[in-house]
Computed example of a mutant assay.
Amino acid sequence: MIHEIALLHIRPGQTAEFETAFARAQQIIASMGGYVRHELQRCLEDDHKYALLVWWETLEDHTQGFRGSPEYGEWRSLLHHFYDPFPTVEHYARVDL
């Protein structure tokens, strides 16, 4: 399982609109192959910053499946105009010690 972490910086004054748009957009990502679950978390110290956490079955489910899908265009049009700067997105795998 892969854990995607995206740090989202929302333009000041647009957090309410972002959350409304995200409520619609989350239905898109949840319908994708390999999607497991997601969480959107708001930063306590800076209320225009969010962390989007998404669990995928494989890295390719996100990078090729979701990002290569027609639905990604709708996701992009709903959310990308809120970001400044554009998010850093990284993928992590669990370390079993």
Rank of each mutant, 00 (worst) to 15 (best):
H3D: 13
H3M: 15
H3I: 14
E4Q: 12
I5G: 05
I5K: 11
L7A: 07
L8Q: 00
L8C: 01
L8T: 00
H9S: 14
H9N: 14
H9G: 07
I10E: 00
R11E: 15
R11I: 13
P12I: 06
G13F: 03
Q14D: 10
Q14E: 14
T15D: 04
T15Q: 07
E17L: 14
E17H: 12
E17Q: 15
E19D: 02
E19S: 02
T20H: 11
A21G: 11
A21H: 08
A21P: 09
A21C: 11
A21F: 06
A21E: 10
F22Y: 11
F22W: 07
F22I: 08
A23M: 08
A23P: 06
A23K: 09
A23C: 11
A23Y: 08
A25G: 09
A25Q: 04
Q26F: 05
Q27N: 15
I28F: 04
I28W: 01
I28M: 09
I29W: 00
I29Q: 00
S31N: 14
S31F: 08
S31G: 15
M32A: 14
M32V: 09
M32Y: 05
G33V: 08
G33Y: 06
G34N: 03
Y35F: 15
Y35E: 03
R37C: 10
E39W: 09
E39L: 08
L40F: 05
L40Y: 03
R42G: 03
C43S: 10
C43V: 06
L44E: 12
E45Y: 09
E45H: 08
D46A: 07
D46V: 12
D46C: 10
D47K: 06
D47I: 06
H48N: 12
H48W: 07
K49Q: 12
Y50Q: 01
Y50W: 05
A51R: 05
L52R: 05
L52F: 09
L52Q: 04
L52D: 02
V54K: 01
V54G: 00
W55S: 14
E57F: 01
T58C: 05
D61F: 02
D61Q: 04
H62C: 02
H62V: 02
T63K: 04
T63W: 02
T63V: 10
T63F: 03
Q64N: 12
Q64D: 12
G65C: 02
F66S: 00
R67H: 03
G68R: 01
G68A: 06
S69D: 01
P70H: 09
P70R: 07
E71Q: 13
G73E: 15
E74K: 13
W75F: 13
W75K: 00
S77D: 15
S77G: 13
S77W: 09
S77L: 14
L79H: 02
H80V: 09
F82G: 01
F82I: 03
D84V: 07
D84N: 14
P85H: 04
F86N: 13
P87C: 04
E90F: 10
E90H: 13
H91K: 04
H91F: 08
H91R: 06
Y92A: 08
Y92W: 10
A93M: 11
A93L: 15
R94P: 04
V95I: 08
V95F: 07
D96C: 11
L97S: 12
